[in-house]
Design a protein around this nucleic acid. Structure first.
Lengths: 233, 233
DNA sequence: CGGCCTGTTGATGCGACTCAATTCAGGTGG
DNA sequence: CCACCTGAATTGAGTCGCATCAACAGGCCG
């Protein structure tokens, strides 16, 4: 990939917003283009990180696997987002495994050169901190949900968030697509596909949503918002 | 509090390790001493952060509360650690409430001045990133535990970690204290005091631990380690 | 002494995970 | 073009972990 093209991609990433033009050039030079086919493991939990990634195209899951093979998806990474960035600063191994759910195109930033560069660019450091803040915020909310709320509340909140992301607002009649299979979504919500299926069916019978071919239409936002507040038992 | 005293405190904090002496002086000047009595709320979830805190003495819980009053403790803050630092970089409200569990002495760093200073100190920025990395790592593990493992596995891991923290190693016969009440510990482990009580009793009957007056003695580390790996159902 | 908080133990119920059977959609090869 | 296979989604029945409700013991303090 050419430098000019990389620069264009970087400019659209949140992590690099506000970074000066010549700094962007340097970053583009040190970024390495790396592609992964569907199902490929990008890095393994426990492995020593050599750098971090920015997703350009495709879909990546960050996943924890228990000894008996059950999965919990920490995060679904969308294009434009970075992943594996946190461990670059701690001398610790990757806390989760990253796997490509679709054919993926990424930019790889080698740890060593990136750290060196970070020291001379306050704007980048500031962005990095903001990015990690948002990750922390997100994880905190997930933790709250999983430990305090039941599945229906988590699902309701997820549907509302998806609607917000897709349309910029929440309202009746708005339709959006699920990012991946329901099995993955279940793992992301800390449950299993059977339970997700049942819960969605219940939402439909309550008149809160409509379903068709992996598309969801919200018909009663107020009902969903009420359920999203719901407490565990 | 005097500057010289503050400096001494700062020097012991992980966040400021490796920061140059004169930088430490500047930080000590901008830090404000603030004390809180037991049970006091240091900041509320949803409130706009004006800065962040470093705990000098006492014990603080960061807690999420559900509408029906149930609590989940995100983190127990020990002296020498900072809290509320993440939101300083994101324009978002506090994701959790901070409450003093004992009489607390803190240093408060106002957001504005701190950010200004951060821009000129690469070492501090680097430390900040490392600190947040470790928080992320910690949250990721908690998330894994709560969603993938059952209470006994979480408790077993917690006991082993406490032992490691206290003695620097894990072995039979080592004794350590619980940081606070069992009710708080239960909320931290994502359960309730009754269940914690039962699980501890079961550990004891299995011969894995001994209990006396808020002190725990590990008698069979291997058994605990095995259970910490345990999977949900 | 009496109130309050913490901790323990028992009985019960509910949410959600497990196991299993079936249907459906997509992709492949004959 | 259809038969076949694989993976996903759905639905039912059974089980289990753990939260809830409730009663009670022990320690601390006014």
């Amino acid at each position: 990939m050419e430098i000019i093209q990389k620069k264009k991609i970087l400019r659209e990433a949140y992590l690099f917003s506000g970074v000066a033009e010549n700094d962007l050039e340097t970053l583009a030079e040190l970024a390495v283009s790396r592609d992964f086919p569907r199902q490929a493991v990008i890095f393994f939990e426990g492995k020593e990180p050599q750098g971090f990634f920015m997703l350009v195209r495709g879909l990546v899951k960050l996943v924890k696997t228990s000894p008996d093979g059950k999965e919990y998806i920490i995060r679904l990474v969308q294009p434009g987002e970075t992943f594996g960035e946190a461990v670059v600063f701690a001398d610790s191994p990757f806390p989760a495994t990253a796997m490509a759910l679709e054919d993926c195109q990424t930019l790889f930033f080698p740890k060593k050169t990136f750290l060196h560069y970070l020291a001379v660019s306050p704007a980048l450091a500031r962005n990095m901190l903001a990015t990690m803040s948002r990750l922390l915020y997100h994880l905190t909310r997930q933790l709250e949900d999983v430990s305090l709320k039941e599945v229906s509340a988590r699902l309701a909140r997820y549907l509302l968030e998806r609607c917000q992301e897709t349309h910029g607002r929440i309202g009746a009649g708005l339709t959006f697509a699920l990012p991946t299979t329901k099995t993955h979504l279940a793992a992301y919500l800390g449950t299993i596909s059977e339970t997700l299926s049942r819960t969605l069916a219940r939402f439909k019978s309550m008149g809160a949503i409509e379903m068709e071919k992996g598309k969801i239409t919200i018909t009663d936002p107020a009902l969903l918002q009420n359920m999203a507040k719901g407490t565990k038992s």
